[in-house]
């Protein structure tokens, strides 16, 4: 296994595979992620999101394939457990970050904790789950990474904190050229945050690419109950409610339809749910 540097800027992943005994966590996973992107890593539970992030962090050795990062890439990884030392105070956690990293921005890390009202001198074991998440994020942000890997960063946060964290994260990385890969299964929160999509199912990359391009290449066609939509293009997914049919159609341009049919743009949520339900159907077939 080598991580040879290839010409592509950002992350180049080629045929990554990882299995635990007989269960496949990641299989032939290939994609490119240009630098400076905020990529949403989406997939059902057990899709391989955590495995992919842990491999990219360098902490886990893959069984197959390889990946290349930018030269001198500095990776920060916040795993889904948001681990902190329970007997350390947040202040000491930041000292640990300062000690163990080549680059450290104390003011940035402290500002993050202050922004989210995390007491600096209380032991982490006595903080709430959400506050511990903030401490883990502060350490990652303080190390000024060029690649920030976040596994379910929003899971322990309340709805208000979620939007604030995503906004602050974006502000932090916007002008620094940091590439971000964040996994989640709460798709709605990614609207307006991510500009790249990595969709995993059963350890394989189902779809990936620039989010706007992906969404622009599809439309949702809605109309009275019908077996087929009145438009050209590949039907990726369909759903039939009482008096209504929905079709997710892959088409290069927005097709014209006549009433009562309507064509509406595809949202990230539409797209992800459609893709995931395809794989689920594929299972039962």
């Amino acid at each position: 296994m080598t991580t040879a540097v290839v010409g592509t800027a950002g992350i180049a992943v080629r045929g990554l595979g990882k299995r635990y005994g007989k269960s496949v966590a990641l299989e032939d996973c290939t994609f490119d992620l240009p630098e400076g992107r905020v990529a949403a890593l989406v997939g059902a539970n057990g899709a391989g999101k955590t495995t992919l992030l842990t491999v990219l962090s360098g902490l886990l050795r893959p069984d197959a394939g390889e990946f290349a990062l930018r030269p001198d890439e500095r990776v920060a990884f916040v795993s889904q457990e948001k681990p902190v030392y329970k007997h350390f105070t947040p202040k000491e956690m930041l000292r640990l970050g300062a000690r163990l990293n080549l680059v450290w921005d104390q003011a940035r890390a402290e500002a993050w904790l202050k922004r989210f009202d995390v007491p600096l001198d209380r032991r982490c074991g006595k903080l709430s789950g959400g506050q511990r998440t903030q401490v883990a994020l502060a350490v990652a942000i303080g190390s000024r990474p060029t690649l920030l890997l976040l596994d379910e960063p929003l899971a322990d946060l309340d709805p208000l904190a979620r939007t604030e964290v995503t906004r602050e994260l974006l502000a932090e990385v916007a002008d620094s050229g940091t590439t971000v890969v964040l996994s989640t299964h709460i798709v709605t929160e990614l609207a307006g945050v991510a500009d790249h999509l990595l969709l995993l199912a059963h350890g394989k990359l189902l779809a990936g690419g620039d989010l706007d391009e992906l969404l622009a290449a599809h439309v949702m066609v809605v109309g009275p109950r019908a077996d087929e939509p009145p438009v050209e293009g590949e039907v990726l997914w369909d759903r039939h409610l009482d008096g209504q049919s929905l079709f997710l159609v892959k088409t290069p341009s927005t097709p014209a339809v006549s009433a009562p049919w309507v064509v509406r743009p595809v949202t990230l949520e539409d797209y992800v749910l459609a893709q995931l339900s395809i794989t689920r159907k594929g299972d039962s077939a």
Partner: peptide, 15 residues
């Protein structure tokens, strides 16, 4: 057990 290995070994220092 505490998964802090993912923290300690994920900084700029190898495990």
């Amino acid at each position: 057990e505490a998964r802090t290995n993912l923290l300690a070994w994920g900084q700029d220092v190898p495990a």
